[in-house]
Write a protein that binds this DNA or RNA. Structure first.
Length: 399
DNA sequence: TCTGGGGTCCTAGGACCC
DNA sequence: TCTGGGGTCCTAGGACCC
């Protein structure tokens, strides 16, 4: 009989990333409470966190909590550079790296024991290398699942390392508050607490059906699985971006439709450049507006064919703005955003991937029509073969 | 708590197809 | 002709994450 060996997953998370980069680059900021941002705190140093300063907090409130707070303007280029250096170390550690954000990743080190030592040794070395070569503190959690590894790093922060003992997973997990569950935010947490469900152990004790009735199908199943330490999700290398977006807060001024249009033109230009740089095309354009009462709407439109052309996408965005215009009531508009979704490859001549979004199969009739119109009937077969070669999702042709 | 900018995923209803 | 089931796409909104 085969014994499937326990997976060994690291969750590596840079501590107070933006703030730490600033303190690294400017010795005067070290040991002092700092916040990166302006109107809103993007990141706070641990010295600032001690005063209760949190990210997403308004600048004014942060200063009230911590009068000595030093506010630093963000330098995104520096963060991107630091992130690249850290990810280079991740990739030297194992080929199985899944980036989650600019400062966080999962590393699967299962089976590296002979080559690199135990997971604890690998994690220790990783922390040392990040400290030495990039000058930043990184916390690592080690566990058999992604979720548990992430919880472990959260508990170990700052500048820590925590290995969840084999067999001790539930003892570790169950006393934690429900908010530690990945996917349990403000709304879900309130629903659970309302019903006296306070800890992860409480969630685990509820039947899945009951949890689904409480939170909806996906959420209920997801949290039920996590609370019982079931998380088979593999570390996924090379995930592709599913959308590209940009948005801009417009402040409190009253803006005319022309002002909004001007801001939107800039956003469309930016996202289209990013789209072309990534060699992608998009099918769906989403306009996002937020009003001064903080209510928000979205309007979207799917193009007949994928595009990366600024003029086509701007036309669509303007059409959406015209549709949304009557909804901009007296309060006016405080944010405008443009997102491009349903992304495909610019270099894929058959665009087989495109009409299907994330789903394995899709509107074959449309795909076939498109290929036939563009390349002739013979191309349909060729297109399917090409798709297979490239490892893409290949739709079944109708009989 | 009076709120930035970048994302992911889920849900639900209607249109449409087989 | 009527009815039903199954499936996908489009759109709008919402929760959540860093």
């Amino acid at each position: 009989m085969f014994v499937i060996s326990e997976r060994q997953i690291l969750h590596a998370d840079l501590d107070s990333f933006y703030a730490s980069v600033e303190q690294r680059d400017d010795p005067r900021l070290r040991g002092r409470p700092i916040a990166v941002g302006g109107g809103v705190v993007l990141a706070a140093s641990y010295e600032a966190k001690a005063f209760g300063v949190r990210s997403a907090m308004g600048g004014r409130e942060a200063r009230q909590l911590c009068p000595k707070l030093v506010v630093v303007r963000p330098r995104f280029e520096a963060y991107v550079e630091a992130s690249k250096a850290v990810f280079a170390i991740f990739n030297q550690t194992t080929p199985l790296v899944e980036g989650i954000s600019i400062d966080e990743a999962f590393l699967d080190v299962t089976g590296l024991h002979r080559v690199s030592g135990s997971a604890l040794e690998i994690a220790t070395k990783l922390r040392l290398e990040v400290r030495e070569h990039v000058g930043l503190a990184i916390t690592v959690g080690v566990a058999p699942t992604k979720f548990l590894a992430k919880v472990a790093s959260g508990v170990a922060k700052p500048d820590g390392l925590l290995v969840v003992a084999l067999g001790g997973e539930l003892d570790f997990l169950h006393p934690l508050p429900v908010e530690r569950l990945w996917g349990c935010g403000r709304v879900t947490s309130a629903k659970l607490r309302e019903r006296g469900v306070l800890t992860v152990g409480d969630v685990a004790a509820i039947e899945e059906r009951a949890l689904v009735a409480m939170l909806g199908r996906a959420s209920g199943r997801h949290l039920h699985a996590l609370a019982n330490n079931r998380d088979p999700r593999p570390v996924h290398v090379g995930r592709r971006r599913r959308s590209i977006g940009s948005q801009r807060a417009l402040g409190l001024r009253r803006l005319s439709l022309d002002d909004i249009d001007t801001a939107m033109v800039g956003l469309v230009d930016r996202v289209c450049r990013r789209l072309r740089n990534a060699e992608r095309v998009c099918r769906t354009v989403v306009l996002r507006l937020r009003f001064h009462d903080f209510s928000r709407i979205t309007r979207s439109h799917s193009l007949a064919r994928p595009s990366d052309a600024t003029d086509a996408i701007l036309d669509t965005a303007r059409g959406l703005l015209a549709i949304a215009a009557p909804l901009i009531h007296n309060g006016g508009c405080s944010l405008v955003g443009i997102s491009l979704t349903n992304l495909g490859n610019a270099d894929d001549p058959f665009q087989l991937e495109l009409p299907f979004g994330a789903r394995p199969l899709g509107r074959i009739d449309r795909a076939v029509d498109g290929v036939r119109a563009k390349f002739g009937t013979a191309a349909i077969t060729r297109g399917v073969l090409l798709g297979k070669e490239q490892g893409m999702t290949v739709p079944m042709l109708p009989d």
